[in-house]
Design a binder for these strands. Structure first.
Length: 424
RNA sequence: GGAGGAGUGCCCGAGUGGCUAAAGGGGGCGGACUGUAAAUCCGCUGGCUAUGCCUACGUUGGUUCGAAUCCAACCUCCUCCA
C-alpha cells in the first residue's frame, strides 16, 4: 500500500531540491505521490520526466500549457523532459470525453498531428538528443497481443482497486455508462509510464489533476517491477469566475500560430480577469517571483499593465518574442483606433472585392461568426463596426470604396474582437 | 433471458396531437456601465440566395388534414429479477 501525499498534508513540507521549491512556489503542485522521496531523488541529480498528450488535433491548446510549463522549468534545471504522444491510444479514441465516440483517426492523420504537436512543443522546450525527447506510445502498444498483454499486466491490476478511482466511481454513481475500453484506458497509461521508465529511465509523470488515478496506477505498476516512480499533478485551472479556462468566442485557444494568430493569442491573455493575473504570471511566464510580487501590488486600472506583461510574456514563450511584440503593437493600434502602418491581422485576396462581398460574408470569413445568420444577429445587435463606423445595415456590401490606404479595412465585432484585414 | 423505466437544442431540463424552432435554467455572444477586469441590468442564442423555405426532439416505418407528442419494429442506457 502506498501512502499518497497530497497538497493537504504537504503544506509544511520544505523541499530541498531547487525543482520542487520552484514548482511549489509558483503554484504547480496539486498532488504528488510521494513528495519527500521525489525531493530526495531530485537532489541526487537530473531525472527524466514525462507528460502525455493525445494526438487528436495537430496543435495543443492552452489547457495543455500547464504541464508544458512545468516541463520547461524542469529542463531549465537540467532535468530531461519527454513529450509522450498517444499515437497508439489516440487510435482507440480518448474516452474521457465520452459524449459520443469520436471518429477514428487514421495513421496518416495521426502522423500529421504528431508533427504539429512536436512543432508546438519545441518552442517551449528542447526535444533534441541529450536534452529531451519525444516518444510515441504506439511504439510499444502496437506490439502487444491481447493475451500477452493480459498475462503481463492484467495480473497487476485488480478491479477492486480500479473501482475506487474517482474517475470510475463518479461515473458509476452518476449511473453513467463506463465501457470496458474506458475502464482499461488507465492500464494503458500505466503501461506507458513503465515502458518509459524501462526505455529512458523516466521516473516522473506530470499531468492534470484529472489524471491522478491513471498516474497512480502507473506508479503502482512500477513498484511491482521494483521501480520507484513518482506522479505529480497540476491544479485544475479555472478562471476566477469558476469556469474552465481556454475558450474564447472564436473557439479553443490553440498554441500553434497556424491555428490561432499571435494577435488572438495575445488578446486572450490580455483579457485575463483581475483575480487570475498573479496566478497566471506565476504559472505561465518565466518572470522571477520578485517581479511578479511587484506587479501584484498594482490595483484598479493599473492592473492592466500587468495583464499586458502577462500577455506579452506568454506569447513570447509560445510564439516567440518577435510575434509577441508584433501582437502587442497590433492590439494597441487597433484598440486606439490608430492602425496606420500596423501589421494586418487577416489577409484576404483582393479578387473578393470585385465580386462584391457582403459584410456578413466577410464577418464569417474572418471567423467572428460561424454562419451568415449569426453574423446577421451581430449586425442587428449593433456591435459591428466597419472602419470605425457602426453598421446597422445587414445587406451592406463591401466595395473598393471601403478600402483605406494600404488596401485594408478594419472590422470589429463587439469591443474586443477586432480585425485589420489586408486585401492583396 | 424476463419485468419496468428512459433517450429533447452546446449542457441540464419542461413539454403527451395543432398556439412548438420547442418553457425554464446554465453556458456562450452582444448592448449599457467600466479598466479590453469583476458584479449588475437588458437583448440574442439551428441554417438558407429569407415577409418564405429547409433541418431538428435515439433510428426506421406507420396512423392523421396535422406528430417531439399516438402506433410498430429496432438501437442504446438505467433499475429489478434470472
Amino acid at each position: 500500500m502506498t501512502i499518497h501525499t497530497t497538497i493537504d498534508n504537504s503544506r509544511n513540507f520544505r523541499p530541498k531540491s531547487e525543482a520542487l521549491q520552484l514548482l511549489i512556489e509558483r503554484g504547480f503542485l496539486h498532488q504528488c505521490t510521494d513528495l519527500e522521496a521525489l525531493d530526495a531523488r531530485l537532489m541526487e541529480g537530473p531525472i527524466t520526466a514525462y507528460a502525455g498528450f493525445d494526438a487528436t488535433a495537430d496543435s495543443l491548446h492552452v489547457g495543455h500549457l500547464l504541464p508544458l510549463m512545468a516541463m520547461r522549468w524542469l529542463q531549465k534545471l537540467d532535468h530531461k523532459p519527454i513529450l509522450l504522444v498517444g499515437g497508439g491510444t489516440t487510435r482507440i479514441g480518448d474516452p474521457s470525453f465520452r459524449s459520443e465516440s469520436r471518429p477514428m483517426l487514421d495513421d496518416a492523420q495521426i502522423e500529421h498531428n504528431l508533427n504539429g504537436i512536436r512543432a508546438t512543443v519545441e518552442r517551449l522546450f528542447d526535444l533534441s538528443e541529450g536534452e529531451g525527447r519525444m516518444a510515441n506510445n504506439a511504439d510499444w502498444l502496437d506490439e502487444f497481443r491481447f493475451l500477452e498483454f493480459l498475462r503481463e499486466f492484467g495480473t497487476h491490476f485488480t478491479v477492486n482497486r480500479m473501482m475506487t478511482f474517482d474517475s470510475v466511481r463518479s461515473r458509476l454513481e452518476a449511473q453513467q455508462p463506463l465501457s470496458v475500453l474506458e475502464f482499461c484506458y488507465m492500464m494503458l497509461q500505466a503501461v506507458d509510464f513503465v515502458e518509459l521508465n524501462k526505455r529512458f529511465d523516466c521516473v516522473l509523470q506530470i499531468g492534470g489533476s484529472d489524471q491522478w488515478g491513471n498516474i497512480v496506477n502507473g506508479v503502482d505498476l512500477g513498484r511491482r517491477a521494483g521501480k520507484q516512480l513518482f506522479g505529480f499533478t497540476l491544479p485544475l485551472l479555472t478562471t476566477a469566475s469558476g469556469s474552465k479556462m481556454g475558450k474564447t468566442a472564436d473557439g479553443a485557444v490553440w498554441l500553434s500560430p497556424e491555428r490561432l494568430s499571435s494577435f488572438g493569442f495575445w488578446q486572450f491573455w490580455r483579457n485575463t480577469a483581475d483575480g487570475d493575473v498573479v496566478r497566471f504570471l506565476k504559472l505561465f511566464t518565466d518572470l522571477p517571483l520578485a517581479e511578479i510580487g511587484r506587479l501584484a501590488k498594482l490595483e484598479g486600472q493599473e492592473l492592466n499593465e500587468a495583464k499586458k506583461i502577462l500577455a506579452t510574456q506568454v506569447t513570447s514563450i509560445v510564439h516567440g518574442p518577435e510575434a509577441a511584440r508584433a501582437a502587442m503593437e497590433q492590439g494597441e493600434a487597433l484598440f486606439s483606433g490608430n492602425d496606420e502602418g500596423t501589421e494586418p491581422t487577416h489577409e484576404l485576396p483582393l479578387a473578393l472585392l470585385s465580386t462584391r462581398i457582403g459584410l456578413l460574408e466577410l464577418i464569417v470569413k474572418i471567423g467572428f461568426a460561424g454562419s451568415n445568420s449569426e453574423a446577421r444577429r451581430l449586425v442587428q445587435g449593433s456591435s459591428v463596426k466597419l472602419n470605425g463606423t457602426l453598421i446597422l445595415d445587414e445587406k451592406r456590401q463591401i466595395s473598393e470604396g471601403d478600402i483605406r490606404t494600404g488596401d485594408r479595412i478594419s472590422l470589429s465585432v463587439g469591443r474586443k474582437r477586432k480585425a485589420l484585414v489586408q486585401f492583396k
